[in-house]
Design a protein around this nucleic acid. Structure first.
Lengths: 96, 96
DNA sequence: TCCGAATGTCGTCGAACGGCGACATTGGCA
DNA sequence: TGCCAATGTCGCCGTTCGACGACATTCGGA
């Protein structure tokens, strides 16, 4: 997902959250923000704190890249930690 | 450049700004922020507004990507179906 | 049908934001 | 050596943040 606006970020977060089977309350707790904050972020709030957004993205196992798109010939499978994703989906995740 | 923290963003912005031969005053004017703001961003301010950061990155022609690293014009048709894997891990396998 | 979970909204509050002007420091060049 | 551009820092100010509690709405299942 190419990000140009805060709306893009909100969209990405929402889709990923649902994809991982989390509700807003759970994700907010994990990230350490209020549920209301998450509501606004998912709607594309442009003045949110960059640090909190970054933490949210990380909690969702979403990587952020800036600049030239890296390694165009790298196999995506090589960079995905399937076990972690599956564990998380099962609810056997570890806090970091 | 993989971004994990506000410091990563600041670093990226500073390097690119210099690379393009701009000083802080010029970039700040283009983005529409104060020079002081840019100073703090380049030092990794964690509570900056996401919208302004995005505008800064765009002004520097830096692309931002979130999620699985994309293969720009390559054929990710054969990409992994994460949803299916996750659903399976949850025990909610549908047809097969 | 009713109940509860999930989501969205409102008002209040202390804290921090970002802009602005001013000043200190650094470094390059005539 | 002196000058000036670039950068970093400070305080003040009006605005907005994000947390919290409470309430409204929607929707799927008992």
């Amino acid at each position: 997902m190419r990000v140009r606006t805060p709306q893009d970020i909100g969209l990405t977060i929402r889709e990923r959250r649902i994809e991982l089977g989390m509700d807003q309350t759970e994700l907010a707790q994990r990230v350490g923000v209020s549920r209301q904050w998450l509501v606004e972020i998912e709607r594309g709030k442009p003045r949110a704190e960059i640090g909190l957004v970054l933490r949210t993205l990380r909690e969702l196992d979403l990587d952020i890249w800036v600049g030239d798109v890296p390694a165009p010939d790298t196999h995506p499978a090589d960079s995905i930690d399937l076990n972690r994703i599956i564990d998380r989906a099962r609810g056997t995740d570890d806090d970091d």
